[in-house]
């Protein structure tokens, strides 16, 4: 049961099927476009995305925007991880903090963060701070929840054991707590990647003169749909790459978990 799941997720075995289906999809899309079934003003085609991509990325004209968005994403994701892990550990360890903060976490998490946009812009303006705030808040929740689950799942007797050997607090943190929650934190981070990216792009859609999100809106308004799709592919490739990286780390650090994968 777990064997077959592992095989599907493992490197190699699942990919040929996927690539075959992707090839079929792209080929039909291209064929449909050539046959004139698709409006070039409203949609694009694989070959036009590729040639437009070579153009756009090769010329370096959007390097600034890529860098802006990358900076926003990195900062938002870093803040989400940093504060998310601290908050997750805090509410995992203190029953009192848990009682106080958990209801708020649930409530705020239930708010679709995009409705906060006007307020965020009022508070933080049009630049980086808004992106860090919105992306950070959105990515923060899964990280808090993951870390909290890890701390809750940790057997307190391990800490007793370390204390019986007279370990310092720092030693207990490094040798017991962090290794045991690492896979949980990473799975929260994996989910957080997408949220951080969405948060940053939303701010750029509505309130920015720079960045990938800004360009996407601009290109759509100018009916440069090919270019829009190029950016879409870039964003998807980037977040998938990050997700894959974290997932590998998660598997490596969590391989001891019987229920891993």
């Amino acid at each position: 049961m777990s064997g077959s799941r592992e095989r599907a997720a493992g490197p190699g075995s699942g990919y040929p099927v996927f690539f075959a289906s992707l090839a079929v999809l792209l080929a039909s899309w291209e064929a449909a476009d050539r046959a004139g079934w698709i409006s070039p003003v409203l949609f694009s085609s694989p070959s036009r995305i590729v040639s437009s991509g070579v153009d756009l990325l090769g010329s370096g004209m959007i390097n600034d925007d890529l860098a802006t968005t990358l900076a926003g994403f990195s900062a938002a994701f870093f803040m989400a991880t940093f504060f998310g892990v601290i908050a997750g550990i805090a509410i995992g360890y203190s029953e009192t903090l848990y009682r106080i903060f958990h209801p708020y976490i649930v409530a705020v998490n239930a708010v679709p963060k995009i409705v906060l946009m006007p307020l965020v812009i009022l508070w933080f303006g049009l630049g980086l701070p808004s992106k860090v705030f919105l992306g950070g808040v959105m990515a923060g929740f899964p990280i808090v929840v993951g870390t909290h689950a890890g701390v809750r799942g940790l057997d307190r007797e391990y800490i007793q054991l370390a204390r019986a050997f007279r370990a310092s607090r720092g030693r207990i943190l490094r040798s017991v707590i962090l290794p045991s929650i690492a896979p949980y934190v990473l799975s929260g981070m994996r989910v957080g990647i997408n949220y951080a990216m969405v948060g940053v792009l939303i701010v750029e859609f509505f309130a920015s003169g720079k960045g990938v999100g800004y360009r996407m809106v601009l290109y759509t308004q100018n009916f440069q749909i090919d270019r829009f799709f190029v950016l879409l592919v870039v964003v998807v490739a980037f977040t998938l790459g990050c997700t894959e990286l974290v997932q590998r780390l998660e598997r490596r650090l969590g391989s001891w978990r019987p229920a891993a994968l």
């Binding site: 057997d155 007797e157 054991l161 050997f165 030693r171 040798s175 290794p179 045991s180 001891w256 978990r257």
Partner: peptide, 21 residues
């Protein structure tokens, strides 16, 4: 036995000494 599940036998044995710095 309370062995740390992510450590092998040697790592678990070393744990007590590690706790003492």
């Amino acid at each position: 036995p309370l062995l740390l599940p992510w450590r092998n036998v040697l790592g678990n044995a070393l744990f007590s000494m590690e706790c003492q710095g």
